[in-house]
Amino acid sequence: MAMKFVIEGLKKSYDQKLVLDDASYEFSKGKIYALLGRNGAGKTTLFNCISSDIEYEKGKFYFIDQEKEELRPSDVGYVLSTPEVPEFLTAYEFLKFFLEINESKIQDTRSIEEYLALVNIDSDDAHKLMKHFSHGMKNKMQMLVNIIARPKLLLLDEPLTSLDVVACEEMKELLRKIKNDSIIILSTHILDLALDLCDEIVLLSQKKLSPVLPLDLDDEGFKEKIIQSLRSEE
């Protein structure tokens, strides 16, 4: 049985505003999940709860592999929608630092150059300060660092939204390559991206998580069904 990640009865509110109410779901390893929801539905809040960046009122997160395991913050790789990289370092230095810190955990370690090649960052760019990097390049670095450690769970918050077409295709390809290593949940409000890249679609609507059954992912009727589900929130 493939490893599963379980969200159970999550409740989160900001002041009096309830954002997530008894949200539950089971995710399996080897698949890319699209977390689809309208702007402000609570996708980033859900990710922040999972990564222990914010507190929540109720709920549990755990893995089921051979046995039940509590989720630890170090199990989570979290790629933010606005990429965050230490801008006083070069890409090469950031990667060197990261590899040294996680030396004991990384299997089949490769050279820094090989890692950078994975996300198509050439040697010229590798030695530039990251404060001069474009949004897309910072995004690639953030993604790279998050996937090297092969976290059990990889959360991607709107990762492809502001990338150009080439960078977007490169990132999609990378995600497809690594999907067998982790449980990948990708939040987006772009339906076509969800349909193109992901194996399953999870709707975050009316404060709850619900599956969209994969009847026929190319069918226009299916798209319409998702839009209807999201509209019902109004």
């Binding site: 170090s74 979290y78 933010l80 801008e87 976290p151």
Partner: peptide, 8 residues
């Protein structure tokens, strides 16, 4: 500000 978003 940037590194605090990484679990490690």
């Amino acid at each position: 500000h940037s590194l605090l978003s990484y679990a490690f």
